[in-house]
Amino acid sequence: MKARKLHNRIAVLRRDRGLSRQDLAERVGVNHQTVGYLEREEYNPSLDLALRISEVFGLPVEMIFSPRPLRPLSEEILARRTREEK
């Protein structure tokens, strides 16, 4: 089975939290180069690593990773709120 390309918001979330790649790498227990590969969407993380990343950002894993291109987080939240209000 060929792996699907996964899109993610790691770069945006990392910058938003004021973390360097090295900081994030240390928190999730990988090499800083791996964070670069994840951010460029050149590597799909294991479930364990995806969960560790979601724990660092305090967000559900589906808010960070998706098989479809991700919209900006602000648009996503706005769309959710709109759906909830309806």
Binding site: V30, N31, T34, Y37, P45, L49
Partner: peptide, 8 residues
């Protein structure tokens, strides 16, 4: 191997 991450 024990000191490498999954991508490595």
């Amino acid at each position: 191997v024990a000191n490498l991450d999954e991508r490595e």
